[in-house]
């Protein structure tokens, strides 16, 4: 695996490629991740989109991309990527398309598509060895329609369809594991609040051929119930509490790229979000909180002390 060119936050791009003026919510954690990803991937890309919040990135005649875009449908963005990838290959092989006209094909979907309706198409694309990159912005619910529960909704979250009791009874589907079980060359989790980790993973994924799949946890002010300015803070809490493990699957192994040495209690992550407010008010639901904490603890107990590549921890801002 090639060494990264991102060893230090100061190497992160300070001029950005994704256009402003998109209609995503103020403080959107998905857009935060996408604009960082786009800086690394570059403009030689064609994004293949499935129904979700980001379908509205391109509303006629406005697009924030410098490169290309195709909207498909909720269930079949990876199949759209297949068609474009195959067509570009055939054009090069048969019709004299110059190689510099080729592009990276990038699937962009929300969790509703990635964890549910589009999973069959993703599975097919991985199994066919399709050379593409998949970016899932995961805001843990059908955000575009008002945050109903999806297969990515975490246990205990209130959603527009889980208004009472402890909220959502199910568990977040282990999409990372499901993807990794197909044994593609690369799977990773990222988050916009950890830009260096994200940049290194996208840099790595960009250089690999075959199916490369990335899930970006996307703090969602609208769907999760917090002030937009807290978007990055919530993301950092997701990592530091261990709720969102930053990891990659590469060469058949799962490696954690950032292991929170002293994990912050999950309650501080949950308490910052309206969707979990019922676990704290009128009184703390200790049982559910303990259950969620135990699940996170159990996860990390299962993580062997892996030889993670030494990751410089993010300084809390630059030091001048």
């Amino acid at each position: 695996m090639s060494e990264t060119r991102f060893t230090n936050v100061k190497q992160l791009p300070s001029v950005h490629l994704l256009g402003s003026g998109s209609p995503m919510c103020a403080g959107c954690g998905g857009l935060e991740a996408l604009h960082q990803v786009y800086d690394i991937l570059g403009t030689n890309t064609v994004f293949v989109n499935a129904a979700g919040c980001m379908t509205l990135l391109a509303v006629y005649p406005f697009t924030p991309f410098r490169g290309s875009w195709l909207y498909t449908a909720m269930a079949s963005a990876p199949a759209g990527a297949q068609g474009i990838r195959d067509a570009l290959d055939v054009l090069k092989e048969r019709r004299g398309l110059p190689p510099e006209e080729d592009m990276q094909v990038v699937v962009l979907t929300g969790d509703g598509s990635a964890y549910g309706m589009g999973l069959s198409a993703t599975s097919g694309a991985i199994e066919r060895g399709l050379d593409f990159l998949y970016l899932c912005y995961d805001n843990e619910g059908y955000g575009n329609t008002g945050q109903q529960s999806s297969a990515a909704t975490p246990h205990g979250a209130r959603t527009a369809t889980d208004l009472t009791g402890i909220g959502f009874h199910g568990e977040k589907k282990p999409l990372f594991d499901i993807w990794a079980a197909h044994r593609p060359p690369y799977v990773a989790t990222v988050i916009g609040s950890e830009p260096l980790d994200l940049a290194r993973k996208i840099e790595k994924a960009k250089a690999i051929k075959g199916p490369r799949l990335i899930i970006a946890l996307s703090p969602c002010p609208t769907g999760w119930g917090f002030d937009p300015q807290e978007s990055v803070a919530i993301g950092k809490l997701a990592v530091n509490t261990g709720v969102w493990p930053l990891k990659e699957y590469v060469d058949g192994k799962v490696v954690h790229t950032k292991i929170p040495r002293r994990r912050v209690p999950v309650a501080s992550y949950l308490e910052a979000q309206g969707r979990f407010a019922h676990l704290f008010k009128p009184e703390r639901n200790e049982a559910v909180l303990a259950e969620i904490q135990a699940r996170v603890d159990g996860y990390w107990a299962g993580v062997e002390e892996v030889v993670a590549p030494p990751t410089p921890t993010l300084p809390q801002g630059g030091r001048g």
Binding site: T43, N44, T55, L56, A58, V59, Y60, P61, T63, F65, R66, G67, S68, W69, L70, Y71, T72, E100, E101, D102, M103
Partner: peptide
């Protein structure tokens, strides 16, 4: 690559 094109836009 040389001609950005957004297709099937909402």
């Amino acid at each position: 690559a040389s001609a950005p094109e957004s297709q099937a836009v909402a």
